[in-house]
Design a protein around this nucleic acid. Structure first.
Lengths: 238, 238
DNA sequence: GCAAAATTTGCGGGTTCCCGCAAGACAAGA
DNA sequence: TCTTGTCTTGCGGGAACCCGCAAATTTTGC
């Protein structure tokens, strides 16, 4: 049994190495990669079926890497190991998990014990192991309360990339008005209309404010933006 | 001699502890704090004059913590130790360094050797030690080429928070037109006018696009936004 | 299969944004 | 003092945004 570790921080990498050794005696080789690119190559060459993946690496982040790995071998078992549980990451992971794949998502702040349980759970027992806190975010992002639907989220990303309503309409094959409707839903869900009276009358540019709020709430983050930008550029052959 | 370590990752914290012990034999006590809040309190209580500070912690990030520490004791020597050299961080640090204070900024990716040199340089020799790469960002952000002036940067933050032109004008005590002028400068410096022909004619909402580009280039980041938001809310007594 | 609910679309208008043009304001230098 | 350059401000207009209203369409639930 082979395990591939993709993680850019050397300290964390060796810590993980140790944890894998301890938790999985049946594992005979442990490979390491220091960023997403190398990770993809390693996974391809070694045919490793078990991967521990950091999100948020420079070069190429974990979500991108996981996607290409899963595209090539959808039965690969991946345990995501991240510092943060930003909604943007959780959503990003959820959106690339292939049908029926087994994966896990644990935070770096969890105990040794839990990490080892997760390793065994995902790699040996083929369970999906999701950290409590991450699970919380997942739920919340589904709860209609202030959770965004996929449609709304997509619009949000397009707006955040700086596209005009017209451009979005074209991209999404919708009418201008529909895009604006979606935007209005967004504005409501993101509470953009707050106006704490005082000062400059709380005048907000709704479009910008929505994105700002999303960023502050971690519904969006830099890596989601980068993904969007890349898709945008490739979508128009560039 | 006392050294205070403020860092939320346990692995990095113990690594730092080790490094301090090794590099500074004259140091008799090493204190640790796991986030900015605790760091501030510790600094106040222990009267430590030497601090190693992570940026990007949950709870309260390093820049905030450093600012309050320096506000209370401007002669404190602080070595920033960060994963990233985002322009937003570099700018954030630069903007809070008191007149004549000694500080350092090294990346987590630098070698043990360099870290130890930096520790000695800042704490013992009272030199300012700035990592090569960080220095590069500093320079670039000054170079008039595509570096933003402070005025432009401020406007950028305001826009990114979602304020309207009018609100910004009021806040900055400028006329509407002046704000818009500054915005136009921003648009040029950030290359917002690119339009790779194909697709939906590359239609951008300039205001949003400028922010998107700034985020992608790390001129802005989430923590800069949070700072802005906090200032905004406090500015109008809220 | 049909009615209720949710989405999509068009229209119209009020507001904000983006920006060219040109007239003051202010500082530096000949 | 006069010139030159940079910065600010006002005016005006075209484009984009925000959104209420209502008809057309699709989806959902029974």
């Amino acid at each position: 049994m082979k395990v591939l570790i993709v993680e850019d921080d050397p300290l964390h990498r060796s810590y993980l190495h140790e944890a894998v050794r301890a938790a999985l005696p049946e594992c005979d080789t442990v490979l390491e990669a220091e960023n997403g690119h190398v990770g993809e190559v390693q996974a391809r060459q070694s045919r490793a079926e078990h991967v521990v993946m950091d999100l948020q690496m420079s070069e190429r982040n974990g979500i991108e890497a996981a996607r290409t790995i899963w595209r090539e071998r959808p039965d690969t078992k991946i345990l995501f190991w991240s510092n943060y549980s930003d909604e943007a990451y959780v959503r990003g992971v959820a959106r690339i998990v292939p049908e029926g794949a087994t994966y896990g998502y644990v935070l770096k702040s969890t105990s040794d014990e839990r990490l080892k349980l997760a390793l065994r759970g995902v790699f040996i027992e083929s369970q999906c192991v999701i950290d409590r806190e991450v699970r919380g975010i997942q739920q919340k992002s589904l709860g209609t309360a202030h959770g965004l639907s996929d449609a709304e989220y997509e619009i949000l990303v397009d707006v955040a990339l700086g596209l005009t309503d017209k451009a979005i309409a074209q991209r999404k094959k919708l009418s201008l008005r529909s895009v604006q409707n979606r935007l209005q839903q967004l504005y409501e869900k993101l509470d953009v209309y707050e106006d704490p009276g005082n000062g400059p009358e709380g005048w907000y540019n709704l479009r910008m404010r929505a994105v700002a709020v999303a960023l502050l709430r971690k519904v969006l983050n830099a890596s989601a933006l980068e993904r969007g930008e890349r898709e945008l550029r490739s979508a128009r052959g560039n």
